[in-house]
Simulated assay, not measured.
Amino acid sequence: MQVGFPHIQTVVKIWRESTAYKTDEKEICYYLSSEPFDRRTPEQWLELVRGHWGDVEIRNHWKKDAILLEDKTRSRNPTMVGALAMLRNTLLFMHKEQEEHETLPGFVEAIAANGNNAFSMLTRRY
């Protein structure tokens, strides 16, 4: 299969079935990799895909929802929703780059308490 990306060596095709929300949804998903196909078994490719999406869920989505209350945003204005999403992503990045506050809630509280700290972090070169 040709995909037109210069560094792609493998296209993984996975048939997925979902029973979430009491619907039987079936779909085909494609995943691209720069690794040669024979570097992994089919089971290892499947494990890699599952691990990636599980990590994304824990690393980003859960933090945005449970700590930064992303799902409580009720605006239907796409510009506002996009701007808030970008701010949340920036906050996650800044938390990861700093070492003073171990927890995200502690970091958010510190930023909220002193806006100068937030400004200095935004203007800092990473």
Rank of each mutant, 00 (worst) to 15 (best):
V81Q: 05
K72D: 13
I58N: 13
V81K: 04
P105W: 07
A83L: 10
G106V: 04
S34H: 12
E43I: 12
V81N: 03
A66M: 09
P105T: 03
V56I: 13
A110V: 01
M86F: 10
L69D: 15
W53D: 02
E70A: 14
T41H: 08
M94I: 07
V56S: 06
Q44Y: 06
A66D: 07
W45H: 02
K64P: 02
A113V: 01
R50Q: 15
E109D: 10
A112V: 11
F107E: 00
H95W: 10
F37T: 11
G82P: 09
D71G: 07
I67C: 02
A112C: 12
S33Q: 07
H61T: 10
I111F: 01
T41F: 10
R39C: 07
R50F: 09
A113K: 08
H52K: 13
R76K: 15
A113M: 05
V49Y: 01
K64G: 01
K63L: 04
R59W: 06
W53Q: 00
F93C: 07
K96D: 15
L104P: 00
E70M: 12
R59L: 11
N114A: 02
L48N: 03
E47R: 12
A83M: 11
A112T: 13
S33L: 05
R40T: 01
G82E: 11
G115E: 07
T103D: 03
T90D: 09
P36W: 12
D38A: 13
D65G: 04
P36K: 14
D38I: 01
R59M: 07
T90F: 04
I67A: 00
N60F: 15
D38H: 14
R76T: 14
A83T: 06
T79I: 11
A113R: 04
V108K: 02
E102M: 12
W53F: 11
L48G: 05
K72M: 14
D71T: 06
P78Q: 10
A85C: 10
E70S: 14
E35W: 12
K63I: 02
A112H: 08
A66S: 14
